[in-house]
Design a binder for these strands. Structure first.
Length: 304
DNA sequence: CTCCAGGCGCCTT
DNA sequence: AAGGCGCATGGA
């Protein structure tokens, strides 16, 4: 896929602000950037002045979308954009995924309502830590906790000068050196010891997050489930959002509501039944289908 | 005030 | 094995 690339140290004629940035334009189709960044899979994107500011690894980045392309602005000279293409999964042909979804009315409605919704490919440690912090929290609260954690323990990064300072997501080693009290001060409550202990296990190589990529999904899940604060739902989030195991299907309260309302509207289905349904009905990209149902339920479908 | 939020771990049956 | 409950915190 062709990528037009513009590197610029020059002044914009309309402003006197000195810039030293790199910009790249990526042609895309069926990519709803807003839905993707707001769909509860990542927690560090902020919509400002018509664009999305965020951090990927150690890169501050600003993204803008139109109907045919995504425009990325980095705060430092950048010639290799592979990390961004990978994070955004720009080479994925979305139609080949959605065509594997079950051909039923709820799935059609969700795909139609959320056209262009994508799954990101995130860093395993950031994803794992973020979802340990997610339990019984609303997305706005998770965002606040993660933001505090990054400000207090993450490495400072260079952002474009007109925007607020940026911080990398703190490494497992840095979190492992924090005290439980310091973590609780980030408002994470009873999740603090889970995060701290998991950070220590990662730092001590009791678990190798990179090795999990190479395992079958079931074995990778078993490894994640050994970590404190990680149950089936959070493990499946990491499998899906960080490793790209697209059969992983996180079942949370929203998805339970969605399955009940969309697929069993006339009789109350037990949790066991809904779990079994989630594992058998949605096919090889079940996790992708789950994201459509989740986002559809959260944003578009009539609230009961 | 009460209730609940993209759950998990532990304690009961 | 399956179900109930406490856990921090903050917003509705």
């Amino acid at each position: 896929m062709a990528v037009s690339f513009i590197s610029s140290n020059s002044l914009n004629a309309a402003t006197s602000i000195k810039r030293d940035v790199a910009t790249a334009v990526f042609p895309v189709r069926d990519y709803d950037l807003a839905a993707t960044l707001e769909s509860g899979q990542a927690f560090r994107w902020n919509f400002i002045n018509g664009g999305w500011n965020g951090i990927i690894g150690n890169h501050w980045i600003r993204l803008r979308a139109d109907d045919f392309s995504l425009t990325a602005e980095a705060a430092q000279p950048t010639s290799d954009w592979h990390w961004l293409r990978h994070y955004l999964q720009l080479d994925l042909d979305l139609a080949t995924v959605t065509m594997t979804f079950p051909d039923d009315e709820p799935m059609r409605a969700a795909v139609t309502a959320c056209r262009g919704l994508r799954l990101l490919r995130q860093d395993p440690w950031e994803c794992l830590a973020s979802f340990i912090l997610s339990s019984t929290k609303q997305i706005v609260q998770i965002r606040q906790i993660v933001s505090l954690l990054c400000e207090r323990f993450g490495e400072p990064l260079t952002a474009a000068p007109e925007y607020t300072p940026a911080f990398a997501f703190p490494t497992a080693a840095r979190v492992a050196r924090a005290t439980e009290a310091e973590l609780r001060a980030c408002k994470m409550g009873f999740r603090a010891p889970y995060l701290l202990q998991t950070a220590r296990l990662v730092t001590e190589s009791q678990i190798d997050l990179e090795r999990l990529r190479q395992l079958p999904v079931e074995l990778s899940r078993d490894e994640l489930l050994k970590l404190p604060g990680v149950g089936r739902k959070i493990a499946d989030c990491v499998l899906l959002f960080a490793y790209g195991f697209q059969s992983a299907f996180p079942v949370d309260v929203w998805v339970m509501k969605a399955l009940q309302k969309l697929y069993f509207p006339h009789r109350r289905a037990k949790a066991k039944r809904l779990h079994h349904f989630s594992e058998t009905h949605f096919g090889p990209n079940a996790g992708y289908a789950q994201q459509y149902l989740f986002h559809y339920m959260r944003t578009k479908h009539e609230r009961a």
